[in-house]
Every structure is written in C-alpha cells, then in structure tokens.
Design a binder for these strands. Structure first.
Lengths: 222, 222
DNA sequence: GTCGAGCGGAACGACCGGTTCCGGTTCCGT
DNA sequence: ACGGAACCGGAACCGGTCGTTCCGCTCGAC
C-alpha cells in the first residue's frame, strides 16, 4: 500500500494504478470471478508484482468491481420503473439485462456475491432484487406477465440466460440475446416476430467444442 | 485387467466389478464428468486401488456411461417420432428430456462428448441430433413450433435447461422441470396453465448460496 | 548522478485430482 | 487347514493450477 507519508506517487505508478483498475474491469466482464490475477496484470501491461503493489488481494479487487456492476444493473431497473405507466418496464429491463449480459460475464457473480464487509449476506444485490420484484408486480398488473410466474422464476430465467454462454467463445453476445428473445416470446407460434436470426448449426458446434474444452477432466478429448 | 488365461475371477472380484459400474453410473448422473474417481470408489464401497484394477482410466469408464445415456435419450426421441401423426412429438420429447435432466446431470457432457475411439468428433450424439432435427421439422409442419426457430435454438434451450441446476443442491429436479415449463409456455399471458408451482424466494436463495459456494476463487465468501 | 520508490516475474505454497505401488488380506484348490 | 496367487486398501506420487510473496534490478525525480 502507498504509505500515508509525504511525497506524491511517481507518475508511472499513478498511471499503473489506473491501468490496473481498467484491466480488472475488462477481465471481470469477460470471465467473471473466474478471471485470473495474471490476466489482469497482463491486460494492464504490468507484472504481477506491480499488480499486488496496488491491490491487497484478488477478493478485494473483484468485490469492488462487482459492487459497481450491481449498481449499474439496479440503476437500469430504476430507470425502467420510472417509465410512463403503461410502458413495458419489465420487458425493457429484461432486454437491458440481456444486453448487459452480452457484454459482461459477471452476472451470476453479481447476483450471488456476498459483501465481505457487511455481515448480512448478499448485500450487493439486495437493492436489485427489490427492484426486480417491483418490476414483476407492475408487469403482472399491466397484464404483461402471466400471474403464475414469480420473481424467482424470472431470476432463474436470467440465471439461465447468463449461463448459456458460459464456457463459450461467444464474445459478440449472440447467445444471451437470442436466448432471452426466445424466453420472452416463447417457442410456440403466434408470438411477435423474433429479433435476430435463428442460431445456426455452426454456432452451436463451436459452443459444444468450447464446452468440451472447458469441461476438461474426463471422457472425450481427441 | 483380468488376464485372458484360465481360471475364472474370484467371486468378490466379480461382485466388485459390478458394484463399481453401478456406482459410476450413479455418480455420473449426479455430477456429470466432474465426478471424481474417489467418489466412484467410495460409492462402490471399494478402495481406489481396486477401482483401478477394473478400469484403465477415468476417461474409459465415463465414456462408456455417456454413450449409454446418449442412446437412452435417442431412443426416447425415436419413440416420440413414432407417435401418431398429429400427436405432440416435439413437446413430448422435450418434456422427456427435462425429466431425464432432472435425474441426470450429465446432459451437457453427453452432448459435447467426443468418442475417444472414433476419429469423427462427437459421434455419440450424432444420432440424437439427427432425431432432434426431425422432431423440429415435424413440429413446425404441425404448427406446434414457430418457423423462425432452429434446431440449434432448441438445443440451446436444452443446454440452458441443463445448466440452470449446475452447482445447485437441487436433487429433486425442480429447476429443469420448472424451467422447461416456462420455456414451452412462454412468459406472457394467455398460454396454457403452467404445471408446478412458481419458484419460491427460498429455493432461489439456496441456489444462490450453492452457486457462491461452487464458484470459489474470488470475491465474496463470508 | 544518486538513490529509493517501483518494477517484473521466478519461485513458493496450498490445493486438487488422477494414477501408481506395495504390504497386507482373502479366497480357493488341495 | 494351509499355501500361494489373486485381490484389496489407501498412502504417496505427480503434474497442474493459482494466489501471493520476495528480491535483485530499473528508472523517474531531484
């Protein structure tokens, strides 16, 4: 840690601190908490030693970032709730969430993370979950959501959406978007036209490859 | 390996061989290929040494089991296709698949596994995927499935269904069933009544706990 | 020029999980 | 009942991964 004493930090040190934070944000977006410290250092163009000069521990570094992301998501929910009555707040937020997921793999971590400072569990997402409940309530009242679906159901759907692309090479976010589109419109005929193209065999092929790769540990590598 | 020579194996050895196979099937159903050899041995009531007397390698043991499971799923698809014209073959098989998933965590492994013997990739599930294509085709022809949904889309949905319960304690298979119900009927009002109860907050809470636990490696453990 | 803040990255340690090895035990034929 | 081959258990080994530490060198600031 920077000593509390006198002199200002050297200019390159200052610049490195910023680079590290930016790199960490990027890497967490790409890999969630599964990201490795070495990746962060590499991305920042810095040695691991330097990384640890600015950050006490991986946990501390990532916790801060997760909190930021949780707030971002919650803000979006609040915006949605502030829409005119009658506007599809729920659907809007769901789409925003899938958009977020398309660019950020930390969703599950954000939902399930606990705040190491606070004793209460999962403080980070408490606000978010309250807002989701409101969105669901409102959507049901507006007849945009069937009444036999709970907020937990919706969260499960989002969880699933986050997970489709786990272990995938899909950096473009094809999966989350397409998946949620299916979710919202349902598989059966008569819904709105789905945005986007159907997934191709090739996309799925690549995913299965990536999966087989990421699930190293047993049966079936050539 | 048992020598090809003369005498029959001792009786306890024979019994152990069977126990080991049974144990392996159980454990793979519970954990997929992530299962550990030690678990298999323990479940069989046998030491690891003994396990390795009968099995050359984890890969070999699991590959056989995965192939069995793939065949089982494919058989069900064939049955569905053999239904009377007009019967909801697609929906039937989807539900069967979620039922299978509810009792078996190896789904993703079955889909993505490659056959170590054969040079062609992913031979195990080739048959299954062909059948799925047929089911989709038929469903579209019958108007049971919107035309802008591909077989790959459907596979993605099944993948997602398999993954909702990953890292969960849900041995009862609540997640896969409920999830697919949502998939098939859609979130919007006007569909058929959903089978089962909405997920509760508590269930989700437990899941998030399990997730946080299984994703050890960073930010946020109390 | 000098000197200490800063730097890089090899090495450490803790953990994990598949596989091996071998002293001891158990079954089976005699 | 006895001898020995077949069989057993599980400690130890090994290769791998990852977070973190340590230390000799570098390079920016004065």
């Amino acid at each position: 840690m920077t000593p509390a004493t006198g002199r200002a930090p050297r200019r390159d040190a200052q610049r490195n601190r910023e680079r590290i934070l930016a790199a960490a944000r990027e890497v967490v977006a790409e890999h969630g908490v599964a990201a490795k410290m070495e990746q962060v250092a590499a991305r920042a163009g810095v040695g691991i030693g330097t990384l640890y000069r600015f950050v006490p521990t991986k946990q501390a570094l990532f916790a801060g970032i997760l909190r930021e992301e949780a707030d971002r998501l919650a803000d979006e929910a609040e915006h949605a709730l502030a829409m005119d009555p009658g506007a599809p707040a729920f659907r809007t937020w769901m789409l925003a969430a899938s958009e977020w997921q398309a660019a950020n793999r930390a969703f599950i971590d954000v939902l399930s993370a606990r705040d190491p400072d606070e004793p209460a569990p999962r403080l980070l997402s408490q606000r978010l979950r309250g807002l989701l409940r409101d969105l669901v309530l409102r959507a049901k009242a507006d007849g945009d959501l069937r009444p036999d679906v709970s907020a937990a159901d919706v969260l499960m759907v989002l969880l699933a959406t986050a997970r489709v692309s786990e272990g995938t090479v899909d950096t473009a976010g094809v999966y989350p978007r397409r998946f949620l589109a299916l979710q919202l419109d349902g598989l059966r005929p008569g819904g709105d036209t789905l945005p986007g193209r159907p997934l191709t065999e090739r996309q799925l092929e690549l995913t299965l490859d990536a999966l087989a790769h990421s699930r190293r540990g047993a049966a079936g590598d050539a």
